[in-house]
Computed example of a mutant assay.
Amino acid sequence: MQKIPAGAWVVVTDGAGARLFHNMGKGATVSLKQQELLEPDDLIDDGPSGKRPAEESDQAKDEATFAKQLAHRLNAAALKQEFTDLILMADPQTLGQLRPQLHNETTRRIIKEVAKTFTNAPVEDIESALNH
């Protein structure tokens, strides 16, 4: 079991939103406190990054756009030294859309990834998943 450092950012996301937590626990104890609720913003005008398939659904485009917006938020925070450790918890598709858009400064701070959807899960379930 990997120790989750105090102050680590835990981002729990899917294609429709994200919850940002800070680990307030000490030692091996994970105790998450929600800091922000991130939702998609201006999806039509912003749009996804990169080349997308022509037959892609509107929902898939919206999810890709949100992944880009979340990556921008995390990159900006990493470059401002707002966190030193990052944990990403997301469904595999969202993780796949997020990873290539993360700056090197953000990527080097990732200490754990959990490829599972926890977006609507209670905090206790998220903490439990991090403790295993």
Rank of each mutant, 00 (worst) to 15 (best):
T107M: 15
L95K: 11
D85A: 08
N75Y: 09
A76F: 09
Q101H: 04
P53M: 09
E82Q: 13
L88G: 01
S57G: 10
N104Q: 15
E113S: 12
T84P: 01
D91S: 09
H103Q: 00
T84W: 07
L98S: 06
R73H: 13
D46N: 12
L95C: 08
P100K: 13
N104W: 05
A71S: 15
D58V: 00
D85T: 03
A64H: 08
G47K: 14
D45H: 12
Q59D: 10
A76C: 04
D85I: 01
D62K: 14
T84M: 07
P48A: 01
R109C: 01
K61P: 05
S57E: 08
E105H: 06
A71G: 10
Q59I: 04
N75F: 10
Q101I: 04
L43K: 10
Q93I: 12
N104P: 08
I111A: 07
S57H: 11
D62N: 14
E63V: 08
A64E: 02
A78L: 03
A67H: 05
P92K: 14
I110Y: 14
I87F: 10
L70I: 06
L102D: 02
F83V: 10
D62R: 15
L86E: 09
I87H: 00
L43Q: 03
Q97E: 12
K80Q: 11
D62H: 14
K112V: 08
Q93C: 00
E56Y: 04
D45Q: 12
A90V: 09
H72P: 02
K80I: 03
K51H: 02
Q81M: 02
I44K: 13
S49P: 05
N104I: 02
L86M: 12
E105N: 01
E55I: 06
R109H: 09
E105G: 03
D91N: 09
L70D: 00
G47V: 00
R73L: 08
I44Y: 03
A77L: 02
H103W: 10
E56T: 07
Q101E: 07
E105R: 08
R108D: 13
P100V: 03
N104F: 11
L70P: 09
P48I: 01
E113A: 10
F83Y: 15
G96P: 00
Q59N: 06
T84Y: 11
A71D: 01
Q59C: 03
L95A: 05
F66K: 09
G96I: 05
I110Q: 09
H72K: 15
